[in-house]
Design a protein around this nucleic acid. Structure first.
Lengths: 211, 211
DNA sequence: AGCCGTTTCAAACGAGTGTTTAAATTGCCT
DNA sequence: AGGCAATTTAAACACTCGTTTGAAACGGCT
């Protein structure tokens, strides 16, 4: 059903395997056999394995970044029109909620988010650069907004705290597909909405902590 | 100078390359040529590449875990003798400060910490299981201490917030060797002591945030 | 029908991988 | 000095990798 398009089949299979096994631990043969296409199709349609990775990331990250950018811009313009600085929590919401909600935007999206969550600490330059290049403008926008929301914080401190924020966030992104940390007998795990609220509350408190 | 011991040379080289390039993107030939030993020495002394990874991790993580465990136990016993619950910040200090200080415990230690910081979100089971198996008892001890420090928090919420904590922490561990996120013209970056204080203050505020 | 650009296919290429082997070398012992 | 176990060495093994090739199949066109 659904996708007779060879290119899309390859993208879907690559996304799943890159997310599950990492870029270097995924072979083109694994991808093409999962996608049920010929091995040479990857190089024909994308040129190389690196270019395939770029395509996999761009396909989902460009729309997601556009959405996050819009939500951030909405918070910022609404703040300037009202004359008040933007609220930390609103900025965080604009950045985090679309990201976590994206996991349920369709099949494979959860894998993709796990992959992106890992990208920041990725040792391989191929993956990290491809990700950083796409996400840096958005991060700078978030940083500028936070400078307005928390003007008393020195810029370096703010940057550091935003790194903590990304770290907490990426932990959620990676571990929603397959939780690494589990303890027995703690009852029901949190729902996705609860998880998002917890994350936002956590990093908001951390960002606003007095020095 | 220093290390004519073949086994140690291999461990040092493997540690550096595993940390810089990841486990799967590091070849035994790269390790042995950096260590200036014969290729077969790895299999002779360690048995396999997987076993070498385990040895690399255990060499540093066992002493580090022992130190963290002792500091945690000290906080906990001092709390029980005083009758009061342990303080969140003291528990965090016992867990975080030795970890960050470990980066300066000698050559290669910073690389090792970066590798450990990545381990939680590692897609590869070889690396993640090896790490989790060594760190889970310590994490459970931290969890129990936090249950005493924050008794009003439901266990699942506490677990989730501790995951955020580990995420923020791993971000510091990974990015101290090579910072991924940098913005131009922000002045001097934080010193290591400032960084540790910031991290502890951030996650402490997040853990203690009211629901 | 015949053509032609696009796509698919099986097969092979050269390079790199972890591991094994058997001989050579070393260093310590009586 | 000779013997012996531990170590080192060069070479090869079987395999997987990303990529390339040239022919085959497809699909819309006049």
């Amino acid at each position: 059903m659904s996708a007779p398009d060879t290119k899309t089949c390859i993208l879907n299979a690559a996304e799943k395997l890159f997310a599950q096994n990492g870029f270097h631990n995924t072979s083109l043969r694994g991808i093409t056999s999962l996608a049920k296409v010929n091995l040479a199709a990857v190089n024909y349609h994308f040129g190389s394995k690196d270019a395939l990775l770029q395509a996999v990331i761009e396909r989902r990250l460009l729309p997601l970044n556009r959405l996050r950018q819009e939500k951030l811009a909405a918070v910022l313009t609404q703040a300037t029109t009202s004359g008040a600085p933007p609220a930390t929590k609103q900025l965080l919401r604009a950045f985090i909620e679309p990201t976590l909600a994206f996991r349920h935007s369709g099949p494979g999206a959860e894998d993709f988010i796990a992959m992106i969550g890992r990208a920041l600490s990725e040792p391989d330059q191929t993956v990290r650069n491809c990700f950083l290049q796409l996400v840096m403008p958005l991060f700078q926008q978030l940083f500028k907004g936070m400078q307005q929301a928390l003007p008393q914080l020195p810029s370096q401190v703010l940057l550091t705290r935003l790194q903590f924020t990304l770290g907490a966030m990426s932990q959620v992104m990676c571990n929603s597909a397959r939780p690494a940390l589990q303890l027995p007998g703690l009852g029901e795990p949190l729902t996705d909405d609860q998880l998002a609220d917890e994350l936002i509350g956590f990093v908001c408190a951390g960002l606003e902590a007095q020095q």
